[in-house]
Design a protein around this nucleic acid. Sequence first.
DNA 1: CTGTTAGCGCCTTCAG
DNA 2: CTGAAGGCGCTAACAG
Lengths: 336, 336
Amino acid sequence: MRERPRAATIADVAAHAGVSQASVSRVLNGKQSVDPTIVHRVQASIAALGYSPSVAARSLVHGRNDTIAMVVPDLENPLFQGILKGLSLAAASDGYRVMVADTAERVEDEEATAVEARHRCDALVLCAPRMPEQRLRRLVAALAPVVVVNRSLPDADVPIVGIDYVRGIRDLVDHLRGLGHRHLAYVSGPASSASNGERLRGVAEVEAAYPDLRIDVIPGGSRLEDGYAVAEPVLAASEAGATAVIAFNDLVAFGLLTRLRRLGVDVPGALSVAGFDDVPMAEYATPSLTSMSVPRIEIGGQVWARLRTLIAGGPIQHTVLYRPRLEARDSTGPVR
Amino acid sequence: MRERPRAATIADVAAHAGVSQASVSRVLNGKQSVDPTIVHRVQASIAALGYSPSVAARSLVHGRNDTIAMVVPDLENPLFQGILKGLSLAAASDGYRVMVADTAERVEDEEATAVEARHRCDALVLCAPRMPEQRLRRLVAALAPVVVVNRSLPDADVPIVGIDYVRGIRDLVDHLRGLGHRHLAYVSGPASSASNGERLRGVAEVEAAYPDLRIDVIPGGSRLEDGYAVAEPVLAASEAGATAVIAFNDLVAFGLLTRLRRLGVDVPGALSVAGFDDVPMAEYATPSLTSMSVPRIEIGGQVWARLRTLIAGGPIQHTVLYRPRLEARDSTGPVR
DNA sequence: CTGTTAGCGCCTTCAG
DNA sequence: CTGAAGGCGCTAACAG
């Protein structure tokens, strides 16, 4: 293996240009005014030596490295992927980069991963953390600046960007009620997921609000296979009178739709099906899937806005919840 | 805003424990043996002060920061998402973190982004770079250690992990030939995509190999909408005698399938449709989509293996190409 | 086995 | 406007 030549340092540039390191530093970050002659000479030397400042040294001096970390339970989740995309683009426009840490759904690793990631970066985004509330509170306090995504944490000193699942469920149920449905089923997500809890809260609230409404809860999951596997209990609910199903998310709805179709169940004729998240594929399902749309990319941007404020020493901004928007499509129809 | 207290340094620990910084450093990275008494005392002080070493200072001394960067054209592409997942998990198991940089498909930004990202990290993964070959060659030489994904670069001193699209196309065509198809259509991807070029090469090769075979190329794209939009030219090809279509990837195939269904075209009765990548959803399409499967996560792991070798000063390992595996499903059937 | 010393590359007072 | 000098926090010789 050939050895790579040692990279040029600011000292090399200074020597080459016949000036002091301080001057080089000055032209580099243009904080003070410098004699045009020197500026020119230094720039020439920089070009000649192919010099570029060491980020490590800068980090040491400044105490920051223009990098933020995002901790997620699963990088394969379309919601988190969208948020990552939005976050990384927004951060990049301010010269920040994003480091990712996937905890592979291991709740017990979340804290250590977050601590380690934060230690390498200037700030942290905690995405849908699964850990217990008290632990989370301590953690966000210890690791500030932090922004929490998709997890409520009442009265905590941390900005939160989330999705109003309670409201989303209610709006979706209203849509179904409008179509005449009075007996529904909800296929729930993973028990550890806070956002599933919110949806369940929405279910409970709406059930309480409408005395003539009944919603059966069926244990499900968060993936395609889970939706596929849950078809039998769903059909049982249907036998028992349910005329519409709300799935934890679009993936589950897809799996369910597929299985129902293979079983010859008419959707939405015999049973209406709705999902959550409005993944791009929803429009392309058979039948096209009614879903609650969530602005994934924009959420990423909003997270960055809050984190940037925090990094700059600004105030902890208010919690913001995005209200999912109904995308009514063909998988939901009037009750027969 | 309350000020955060300055973090403890190794000097604080040394003072607290009544030993030298060197001793603290020694117990920290256990390189040399230290008197058990001191070890104990230092550990107590570390715990008492809540000390944790500064990564910036370490980076400066060691000249590395245990971070690698991955540059991708689009974080929303399922293939890259899978590779990122696999890469980040594999790297994490060796104590490395991954930083992402999304060029948002802007070829003109690729080089600058790669240079900047590399400057912050110890190594680089270039995912399906779109830039011209000569420029890419210079870049990988300048930014080593680098691993290139999904882009061929003959005789370059860089490990490459890719997908054998040529072979994949051939195997897929063989599957269709076996079903009796002799006149096909290929819906192509973005012109700037190297992997589209490979697929086209596969198309050309297989056409040359089978004199009785004809493959029409139809300009398409890489997304759901592109597949939806390309239905008309596909049907025109069908009128002209084509009995099967190969789409650039599964997203395009999905879009196409959806449009065809809405137009009342019988798949696979009137027309067989196949995709590429085998995204999880493929199995759940209507009809389930025949596709060529690619081990996204594993590719990420393989990329890390190569990069790790390089970082450790090892040799530039050979190019490895994954051969896509046929997943024959219901969207392809015998020609009538 | 331990402490002292000199950097790693850069920025930032402080004089001049 | 410029240069010299000290320090950011840590590690790696080098003596003791």
